[in-house]
Nucleic acid binder design. Structure first.
Lengths: 157, 157
DNA sequence: TGTGGGGCTTCCCACTATGGGAAGGTCAAC
DNA sequence: GTTGACCTTCCCATAGTGGGAAGCCCCACA
């Protein structure tokens, strides 16, 4: 089976299959006399595993671990579950972050007339780091690590 | 004011300030005799605007537009609001996507014993594209554009 | 048997946004 | 003058995916 057919069968693009192979995520497959890669059912199966893992948001590095667990007969479901729970927490944290930004912006938008005049609380809020009328959020600076202190300079004149 | 002080005052790292300047997001500032960049209050103000826009998840390209609207006395609040609403929709769509992945995985995790045995519905689900007992979600392949059809080949022998 | 076109190969570049680090110049305090 | 923090530019790295070029392979059809 050529790479194009493996791509269609697995849902992973040929481009990505080559990439996954190049970074060692999936093993190098045999070559035909022509030099074309030759895929068997097992290879396609594995690519499908990768594809579904990606669909659930796993990073390639984590999929590397998942593939290891998949092929390890002495794995425990506890290991798999722990990995999944870690990932779930990360997903939900990111989702919360995005939703919080949306909520802040939603509050500002509600206060914006959206007419022909230039006055706009959205622009005003971006301009100055002040509280926004969201009820409970009240700050713009989310999740950014504080910057390290710099030595004060006597900026002359 | 040197770049380090502008960075601390604005919350944008010196590295990023230089980068923003290099891509034309913020104008090139004057240089001191030493060749050091020299920042004034207006520059810091603008950098703060960029910082807060980033904190709300705006892309640099969209911040370019926002900066244009900010400095445009003939802007309308409708323009700003439209841009904000577009962004809100994108944020919430991404948040939903992440949350949906988390929910699917949560369902699989609930069905996983997490003990010393290898049997694991999480691995099983990644292995084969079958329905998962989540109640309403029931699919793994989310949001991926379908791949274009390829011509079937008579894979000889 | 020749040819056309689609698939395959490798290799490089692009994207987003940010940071690390090197090599070297500048400034201010002591 | 020395020292150390700060500045300069330039290159590289990240994560994941796609675009595209140059060139070879293969097969169907005329």
């Amino acid at each position: 089976m050529n790479i194009g057919q493996a791509a269609e069968a697995s849902g992973v693009s040929a481009k990505m299959i080559r990439h996954y192979e190049s970074i060692g995520l999936v093993p190098r497959v045999d070559r035909q006399d022509s030099g074309y890669r030759d895929y068997g059912p097992e290879d396609v199966h594995r690519l499908g595993f990768v594809r579904r893992s990606r669909d659930l948001g796993f990073s390639l590095e984590r999929i590397r671990v998942l593939l290891g667990l998949w092929g390890d007969p002495s794995r425990t479901s506890a290991e798999v579950k722990a990995l999944a729970l870690t990932h779930i927490n990360e997903l939900e944290e990111k989702a919360r972050h995005l939703q919080e930004m949306a909520t802040v912006l939603r509050g500002l938008s509600l206060a914006c007339d959206g007419d022909e005049r230039p006055d706009c609380p959205i622009i005003a809020s971006l301009e100055t780091a002040q509280k926004v009328p969201t009820g409970q959020v009240g700050h713009n600076s989310l999740l950014k690590a504080p910057m390290r202190k710099r030595r004060a300079r006597t900026t002359g004149a």
